[in-house]
Design a protein around this nucleic acid. Structure first.
Lengths: 335, 335
DNA sequence: CTGAAAGCGCTTACAG
DNA sequence: CTGAAAGCGCTTACAG
């Protein structure tokens, strides 16, 4: 038989109440004798008692668990944020459930519903473009949640993002300062506001420098088949702008794929080209030590997301009538 | 008020029982009139009813959830296996909780206890070397679990691993066939049986080829500070064996770090060197397209781990007296 | 065709 | 100092 409060109570001929008080550390506070307390602890240990957290949560109405939904667990950016969130949550006494939406709206919606059904206390989401149905439901129900990395300008939710426009601007600016005159933009998913902003920063940098831009320097990669498509797109750029001397990648995934292309085409990018990218992966130090990189503030994203969520959770549990203001956190990248 | 069975029952002036039957799809089976069923569904939808899975699990004794513990969620191998496991589990009607042990035994033990307290139906673990306390507890309690990637030869548990010895052998053999004569081994964590076996494969390949080996060709990197240590270790190898012409890395992380070293030292590994590695990351296609790589059978590891766990879970739920035999699955890598 | 009742394992007012 | 009792939201034998 599984060890439960009841079993301990019967063994010791005490009530479940007493056992519960002692084991939850309220023994002395409730005035239970030292002697009894010792016996209870001893017995719990002997029978390897493990409280059933489901039962506890069912009663208390809180699970001390938060859910995290990311588009892709194998993406180094998201997995690093996941780790930061896990650490921060743990510090706050919460455990984390991680799910991957695989950038699939339906999957993401399912995950949100599942988290709610499992009574997580709050949810952190890096949403997919069209995920509004369940997100709106969360808003209506006042279910604690916070978005990160991506958000919906038309929805008034908490979110934690990086300053995409300015980050891009600074990276591209650095490339120009280093001598690049014809900088190409390699990007993807521009329908995401986050990605669109990265394009804006690129454009502003070129404009300010009085450097020409144009359709021919912009490569929009469809993310579904980026491996093949990037070949075509880079080929096109080289064909139309033979003197291209810089590539700004809006994500590390595109950059890595481009390196594969350069290698296959025997293009030596170590001279004559300036490269730029948002988010650093370790391979870059070998592939392109001189690349202009904006490092994601992983730690800060994790901490802020958890912190905001904690506030929402506590507000809800304390039944605040006047909710605190929506938080929009925009973090700078590291250079 | 939160929508519950009770609320629907009161609204419809029916019993909770009826609502429960209908909503769990057993309406017709239990002979509940079409009309009532329609009403129940309509009402549930209107009130946005979401069953409380905690309550259900508490009653049924199963949570339809499995736990996964990996040493590092940001490691591309583990995160890919995690994704494979998530997909496979979902197909079996289970959802997944992922935790990272950060290669910390105490953390891992805590995670195992937490999973049990949350009543997950089973656990999949890529264990840290010394994690035996809670693993043994799982064995004693007959709690369903399966190890992957790493295992304990002295413990009789289910596990899914790759054929480490033979994989290494084949990679190094390929390097030798391509002309390498002085192949260095760059490895780490050799106290892990898994890693030790990879060294064994290397040694067998050299031996069979009648190629000399020796202390000077073996670099054991302490994993804690591998970034700095690999510099020292590679420097040593070049110093003592100037004509070294091959490097076999037992993990992709070491290989990536070595590429950074080669780049910093201006060593052109594209000629005159054979390289080998277990597990492929996308950067390799740009860094060293000719590298000899054994690709991890990610999908198979995920599927097999989940499958074995499912069997254990079902056996337990059906109270099998005669447990089925322990499963040791050893998968080949892809070449 | 439908319902009353017990129970999963906890917590927590309330009572003495 | 300790206990009896209710309740969290479900499911499921049992009864009619």
């Amino acid at each position: 038989m599984k060890t439960s409060l009841k079993l301990i109570a019967e063994t010791l001929k005490l009530s479940k109440t007493t056992i519960s008080w002692v084991l939850s550390g309220k023994g002395s506070e409730k005035g239970i004798s030292e002697d009894t307390q010792r016996k209870v602890w001893e017995c719990a240990k002997r029978l390897h008692y493990q409280p059933n957290l489901l039962a506890r949560s069912l009663h208390t109405g809180k699970s001390s668990t938060i859910g995290l939904i990311i588009p892709d667990i194998t993406d180094s950016f998201y997995s690093k944020v996941a780790r930061a969130i896990e650490m921060e949550a743990e510090e706050q006494g919460y455990s984390l459930m991680i799910c991957s939406s695989e950038s699939d709206v339906e999957r993401e919606n399912r995950m949100i519903r599942l988290f709610k059904a499992k009574q997580v206390d709050g949810i952190i989401i890096a949403p997919t473009k069209k995920s509004q149905v369940e997100i709106k439901a969360l808003m209506i129900e006042k279910y604690p949640f916070v978005l990160f990395d991506r958000f919906f300008p038309e929805l008034d939710t908490d979110y934690v993002i990086i300053d995409n426009e300015n980050t891009s601007y600074r990276v591209v600016n650095g490339m120009i300062k280093s001598g690049a005159k014809k900088v190409a933009l390699i990007t993807t998913n521009s329908h995401l506001y986050t990605m669109w902003l990265r394009g804006e920063g690129y454009r502003r940098a070129l404009q300010e420098a009085g450097i020409g831009m144009g359709e021919q320097l912009v490569g929009e990669v469809k993310f579904d088949h980026y491996e093949e498509e990037i070949n075509y797109i880079l080929d096109e750029i080289f064909a139309h702008v033979p003197d291209v001397d810089g590539f700004f990648f809006t994500t590390h995934i595109l950059a890595l794929e481009a390196f594969r292309y350069f290698s296959e085409r025997n293009i030596d990018i170590s001279k004559g080209y300036e490269l730029g990218c948002i988010h650093r992966v370790s391979a870059f130090r070998a592939l392109a030590p001189r690349m202009h990189i904006a490092r994601m503030p992983i730690q800060e994203i994790g901490e802020q997301s958890v912190q905001i969520l904690m506030d929402r959770i506590h507000d809800k549990q304390n039944d605040m009538d006047v909710p605190r203001a929506i938080k929009h956190v925009m973090l700078p990248c590291h250079f």
